[in-house]
């Protein structure tokens, strides 16, 4: 506790160690990430939903049929982060982007590590970069980022 002449101020930390059950589909997605693989799932009319969901968000019908997608992908929208915060996945400037892997019909929010804002463009080709196999645990952070395809 720091002491000022009059008023006390103190840093506080509030932390809850939640864990949740993933269900079959999110569990599959995370298991595939641990294998270094991106998967989607087929929704109504064969549309491939990525990341996979248990139900098609448009029709509420149950999805069925795991499909491998990526690792190549297209950036459909993005925003540049000049000054990353401590809790951000990268500690140097990067882009949050909606990323649609090859073979998928929907996009997911993830990170593009492009080096500079001028390297970013809607429609640009990117590819997934995973952590080394022995460091992957079946979590979103197993997928470090997407990088411009030519940079790989």
């Amino acid at each position: 506790m720091s002491e000022s002449p009059e008023i006390f101020t103190s840093p506080h930390v509030l932390e809850f160690p939640y864990s949740r059950s993933t269900g079959p589909v999110i569990g599959s997605f995370l298991t595939a990430l641990r294998d270094g693989v991106l998967i989607g799932i087929k929704g109504t009319g064969g549309k491939v939903i990525f990341p996979p969901t248990e139900y098609d968000p448009d029709t509420a019908e149950e999805t069925s049929g795991i499909v491998n997608v990526g690792p190549g992908a297209v950036v459909t929208s993005w925003g540049w982060v000049n000054q990353p915060l401590k809790q951000h996945p990268l500690q140097h400037p990067f882009a949050w982007a909606l990323i649609q892997p090859d073979g998928a019909d929907t996009a997911m929010l993830h990170v593009v590590d492009a080096g500079s804002e001028s390297a970013m463009a809607t429609g640009m080709r990117v590819t997934a970069i995973f952590r080394p196999a022995d460091e992957r645990i079946g979590a979103m952070a197993d997928l470090i980022a997407f990088v411009p395809e030519e940079a790989k």
């Binding site: 101020t9 103190s10 509030l14 932390e15 809850f16 059950s21 294998d35 069925s64």
Partner: peptide
């Protein structure tokens, strides 16, 4: 329906996910 991805990883499929929630803040006593 087929909603399951099959892994050859001996650790099996992921069924639980740790999602800790953490808030750091300053309390000013007044």
């Amino acid at each position: 329906s087929d909603q399951t991805y099959v892994t050859s990883d001996p650790r099996g499929s992921i069924t639980q996910l740790a999602t800790p929630s953490r808030l750091e803040y300053f309390f000013t006593a007044g």
